[in-house]
Each structure stands twice: as C-alpha cells, then as structure tokens.
Nucleic acid binder design. Sequence first.
DNA 1: TCACCGATATGGACAGTGTCTAGATTCTGG
DNA 2: CCAGAATCTAGACACTGTCCATATCGGTGA
Lengths: 203, 203
Amino acid sequence: MLRVSRSDSAYHHGNLGPALEDAALDLMRTQGHTSLSLREVARRAGVSHNAPYHHFGDRTGLLKRVSERSMAELVSAMRAAQASAEDASPRERAVRVGGAYVGYAAEHPERFRVVYDPEVCVPGSPTPTMAPLITEIEGILAETTAALLPPGAEAALMPLTVAVWGSVHGLAELVVAGHITQDDVEPALVALLDPGSSARLAP
Amino acid sequence: MLRVSRSDSAYHHGNLGPALEDAALDLMRTQGHTSLSLREVARRAGVSHNAPYHHFGDRTGLLKRVSERSMAELVSAMRAAQASAEDASPRERAVRVGGAYVGYAAEHPERFRVVYDPEVCVPGSPTPTMAPLITEIEGILAETTAALLPPGAEAALMPLTVAVWGSVHGLAELVVAGHITQDDVEPALVALLDPGSSARLAP
DNA sequence: TCACCGATATGGACAGTGTCTAGATTCTGG
DNA sequence: CCAGAATCTAGACACTGTCCATATCGGTGA
C-alpha cells in the first residue's frame, strides 16, 4: 500500500484522506451518492468506522470533497473539448463543448449528480476549492457563447450564456435520469443553435 | 380528522395512504427527499412506524407516489401557462410555458427533484400513473416547439423539442441548485429563442 | 345473525447508519 | 528527547428501513 509516512506501522494509514475519496468514488460507480455509507467507505479503506471524521468532519464533508474532484474533472473535459475545437466554427465548438459536458455526466452520472446536489454544494457559500471551478465553467461557457453572437449583440452575452449553461445542463440531467439518450444530445444542440429553427415570427 | 370509514375506532385510520403522502409532501417543504424518514412521516400521520408498508411497500414506493403527484402538478402548471398564452406569439408562449416549468421547480424544489431522481423514477419502466404524465410533458413541449418552426422545417421538430426540454429543465435545475436566480430565467429563454443571437456564422 | 377472511394497523426485533466521547498510538517541532 | 498535535480505534447512542408475528376492523357468504 502506498504510504506517505515512513513508518510501517498499520496504525496510521499515512494517506487516508485521498484513499477514502477514492473508495467513495469507486463505490459511487455502482450506487448513488445518497445511499453512500461512510462506514462502508471506511471498511473499503481498511480503517475504523470513525477514521473519516478526522479528515472530513462529517459525511457531507466527504461528499463536498468528492464533488470538488468531480467538478475539476468536468472542467478539464470542457477545456479539452474547447481546445480540440479551436479551429472549428463557433457553432461547431459550442456543440463540442456542450457535448463534453453531457458526455461527462453520461459517463459518471453519480459524480455529476453530487456536484449539483443542493444539500452538498451551496453556490452561495462554496468551498474555497469549488468557487474557482464554478467561475471557470461560467468562463468557458461565456467564451463559447460570445463567439456565437453577431457583432453588436454583446448585451445578450450574459443571458445567452445562462441559456447555454441551462441547455447543456438540462440535456445532461435528462440523459442521467434516463429520459433521453446520449444520441439525442448532439442533434438537439445543433437544432438549438440553428438560427433558422426559431425564426418563424418577428419579435 | 377526516375519515372515510364510518367507525370512530382509532385503530383503522380510514384514509391513511393520502394522509401519509400529505405528510411526506409537507416534510419535503423543509427537508430534502433524500433525508426523508418513513418513520417521521408515520409519526406525523399519528400511526405506527410500520403502517406505511401496507400502502407503499417500501420507502421508494412512497417516494414514487409523491413524485407522481408532483409530476401531475407540474403538468397542470404547464397546461395552464399554455392555455393562458393561447393568443400570444409562439415565442411568447414558449417563454411562458418554459417559465411555468421553471416556476414550479423554484416553488417546490424538492417535489421537482424527486420527479427526476433516477433512484425513484426510472423512465424505462415508469409507474402506470407516471407514464402518461411523461408523455403529456413531451406533448406540451412538442406543441410549443412546433409553433416556433418555420414552414418546411418539420424534420427539426423532434431534436428541437428535446433541446427545449433540456433548456427549461436545465434552467430549473440551476435555479434549484442555487447557481442562478429565477430572474435570470426569462432573459435566458428570450435570448435563446431570439434567432438573431446565434446567427453570426453560416452553417 | 354470525363466523370467517382479507385488509389494515401494531409492536418487537435486527442490522445498518451518522455522530459523539474517550482513549490509544504515532508523528513532529522545539 | 519529549510534549503536544495529528491520527486512528473502540464503545455508545439514537435513528433508520425492513422483517415477523399479532391484533383489530370491515365486509361477505352461510
């Protein structure tokens, strides 16, 4: 077992915090984070049922940490998509970035779900680690959205950014909940960003 | 206390099922459905901790029932908005229907959340009561979306309907999670449905 | 009318959980 | 080298979901 500590004693684990997080993430592959048991996590890590308390305070503390790591992964996926679509058209890039968002949710539904659980993360008072991640998501979406706007429409950036966030987030939730398939997502995003779709009537 | 039974005996409640649902809905005004306790619900209704089992089978059974009632309320709100915007423009109507969706979520966050909890409702095998409600939501959204399409673009109806569902659902979730305010929703929907917003580049 | 049966409600029991307190062990800085 | 901080363990408590056996009620057929 990997140890940060130099001692071979079994009493102190040496790297328990991350080990517990890993165990939790592993358990969340097969069960929802709502039914995740602190004691089972401790059992997985081979440690007493109370050891987690010295690292996370309480159950929500562990979930907060897990949601931070998940949010970081989500941001990475979006940044990667943004970079890989650097030379594509703004609309193509928006579809790719949105696809990355939904793709992460589809691949790790429970990690995605814990990130947006109001009982875990309250955006009004986010964790020091979580706050910049939220800012970065908003930034990526704003950049992606800005490229879609016609010149002179900069005033619409903020509301449209919110709309884009809502769209990809909603599609992700619908996929996770099982109401739509991941195959439905790209056509939906394309249709949404097609200016012809909703152009029937004048304002 | 309201009794369906004619007897005044306290042994049989007479109308326990709905009474338990009401108690659960009431508790969910102040606590999440994930931390909702079957025993507390029973206590609220003034019955033994085991009485709920004869009506719902298990905890998830009660949550399923609660989510059915909540989904019915959500559908009603959308139908009402659709009717009240009968004479408005398609875009105005879409904003109103979407606003009703988000409004319900903002007003009853926990009822909204339980409806889309994958551990409660699995769309693949929905409850007999839930199935038509899901169909009706999709129908309302399809009607609202169809009116937005230019003539000859009927092929885009399905993907755009999915996109609209995703958009309003995502905005609702973001409001519930606290990432945006309800005041952000209408501008976002307007921006999203404005054909000028995303018209910068040709396909 | 009345005995019976299914539906409804009760109580006790059990394993599992989150969290508190107290105590044991190891690490570390002066 | 040693005292205090950090880490981990053990025991206890209240609470939970669920199973089982039991009690009560309402209606139905003889």
